[in-house]
Write a protein that binds this DNA or RNA. Structure first.
Lengths: 232, 232
DNA sequence: ACCTTATGTGACAGTTATGTGACGATGGCC
DNA sequence: GGCCATCGTCACATAACTGTCACATAAGGT
């Protein structure tokens, strides 16, 4: 799956420049000018790296970073800060807050791309250590393995991404359209009933003989990962 | 459910222009030329965003905004101000008063729509607020779960929307027609007695063995959510 | 008390949403 | 090319929810 980078920056020109260069590098780009919205996107979508402007309209980059690190479920999402020249003095504060690197504006796109590669390479082993766990389900992302109750579970690629998305946002209800956006990719055009079929395949693989269904169907709304789904 | 936008504007032409464009975008439109009435509508209907003209016949847009923010129960309803050119100087005051954005007239419909999208996305966490609480009832909107006294409550989609509407306006009495407008959608035409049936279903699901009825029947007027319903 | 009107309640039949099995298409791999 | 796994879509089965009715009950008015 192509890595997803979230750009949090309020200068539209810069965003477009970055989008162009990074998409050429094979990344998928999300962008928003608002820190609040950034935190929201991280909740709902899979994001591999965040490019975070220091100065933002309402909420500063530092604040975004702090709140991001405070979230419990969020694994250590790599963050690269974008700072203007005069703000260099605050570099330490930025790194303190949990950013993985910083780049001072103006910068050459090549430099940024190099740092992105570096951070993502560095972050991957850290990421890999982190297995995703919810209830009795365990995902090992690096080895691409899933187990329930220590019993191995085999999933197709799409089911794997689907489960991963649920595990990254346990309990949350996603509409079929949201799932298509997040699991298949933004702008992909797929019949929403296809989601049902993959949900079924995921359920089939995940639910053993006498195990609870961990996927809750919310009629007219979507699906959610929920260990107590059976509270009927 | 389609998002609802309330337009508060006294130029009829502009209202119709906006209505046309926004309905095409899939929004449901309410409109009123009066600030007083706007505050009333917000009390009684579910509204996702308010487009507020700066200059209004009796009560100015600022005043509307101020009063809106002062209301206790009202979650932070996103507000976009519409200002004429010469009023730009007051921009700061507008944002101070609590508006989330402002647009100067004349404007291109596309620009307004872009800002509406931005504001609504930004406001979502404030709007959905994760959870609604009233008395011993708790609704988790993101997880689509309802509980009373920590006991899970299962509701059908319509009962869920109905309860949500009550929880967003606790204590307030709604006529059957108002409920149909807000919960089913404007322009939907169904028998008003149908509301009674759904109220019954909601009561049945909500009222456990020895729990109080939380829905108060107001004879010849409608229903209200009211924890002390039985003290009648 | 009596009549009138409004609301509570259980049942039912139509409608809509979801579950499920099967199928052909696609693309990697040998 | 043939094999295999996976994918997206369809058609049909099943389940859940919906709106309405008929009748029971309760509340107001006189």
């Amino acid at each position: 799956m192509t890595p997803v980078i979230l750009i949090v920056e309020d200068e539209a020109d810069l965003v477009e420049l970055l989008r162009y260069n990074l998409e050429r590098e094979g990344y998928e780009i999300l962008a928003t000018p608002s820190g609040e919205e950034a935190l929201l996107i991280v909740e709902e979508r899979h994001v591999d790296l965040m490019l975070l402007d220091w100065m933002l309209p309402h909420m500063s980059g530092i604040e975004v970073c702090r709140q991001l690190r405070r979230k419990p479920g969020s694994r250590a999402l790599p963050v690269i800060m974008l700072t203007a020249r005069g703000e260099q003095a605050d570099r330490v504060r930025g790194l303190d807050t949990g950013a993985d690197d910083y780049v001072t504006k103006p910068f050459a796109p090549e430099e940024l791309i190099a740092r992105i590669h570096a951070v993502m390479r560095r972050a991957r082993p850290a990421l890999s250590e982190e297995r995703l766990t919810y209830s009795d389900i365990e995902m090992n992302l690096t080895e691409h393995k899933v187990a329930r109750n220590n019993r191995p579970v085999v999933l197709g690629p799409t089911e794997f991404r689907l489960l991963r998305h649920f595990m990254e946002h346990p309990g949350r209800v996603f509409s079929r359209d949201q799932l298509i956006d997040s699991v298949w990719g933004h702008g992909i055009f797929i019949d929403s009933r296809t989601v049902d079929v993959h949900i079924r395949r995921l359920r089939k693989a995940l639910n053993g003989k006498d195990e609870q269904d961990v996927i809750r169907t919310v009629r007219s709304a979507g699906y959610a990962l929920d260990a107590e789904a059976a509270i009927a």
